[in-house]
Amino acid sequence: MIKIFTYTWAILKGMAITFKYFFIRPVTVQYPKEKIKISPRWRGTLKQLRNEQGEETCDGCRICEKICPVNCISMEVYKDEKKNRRFTSSYTVNFGRCMFCGLCVEACPKKCLVHTPDFEFCTYERESLILTKDKILR
């Protein structure tokens, strides 16, 4: 008999909790309409920075290419004799392979490769996930 009452009491207490939450404002967000704030450290797609003069900072040291665990970065490098430094003639990141580990950004000696807070990069074709230099250098 006591067992029945304790059981019923436990069941009613559980029901009270769900009933309480019935009147509490939901915690979910209506995603495409409202978006939650993303941390500034968010590891999104990659971006190359320019320096203050508007020149590209990347000198093609190939460290990011080497450190990438999934080999999704590839580049071609040439040497500009006039400026006496190297430039990349092409810089391609295959975001179909990228696992956003952030090792390339961490390793970049010139600090010119950074993550963007962008997380919405769904496309219809796989080809459009391969970003070339004109899209990465912003």
């Binding site: 939450y21 019935f22 939901p26």
Partner: peptide
């Protein structure tokens, strides 16, 4: 709606 609000969701919106 009942399930959604008990589970802190909105349900269909």
């Amino acid at each position: 709606k009942v399930s959604a609000h008990m589970q802190l969701r909105y349900g269909p919106m």
